[in-house]
């Protein structure tokens, strides 16, 4: 039950929304968009690794080759 991944994703999401607002105040709109994109990519990488682990487990439990 490794719970830390969930909190990592939530933390990244909140951080990005805060930075997005800050950058928007400093009227650097493009960098805000870039930051959001980067955040989504980081979260995607983490989730894809989790999916890989899930598929390996399903494959082993259900012999789904």
């Amino acid at each position: 039950m490794n719970v830390d991944l969930i909190f990592k994703i939530a933390g990244i999401g909140i951080l990005i929304s805060v930075f997005h607002i800050i950058l928007k105040q400093a009227d650097k709109e493009e960098q805000a968009q870039m930051l959001t994109l980067a955040g989504v990519v980081v979260v995607l990488i983490m989730v894809v690794q989790l999916i890989n682990e899930l598929y390996n487990m399903v494959r082993s439990v259900f012999r789904l080759f």
């Binding site: 719970v3 989730v47 682990e53």
Partner: peptide
């Protein structure tokens, strides 16, 4: 959605 996905997978 990633949050829900992460929890679902776990």
């Amino acid at each position: 959605p990633f949050l829900a996905l992460g929890f679902g997978i776990m």
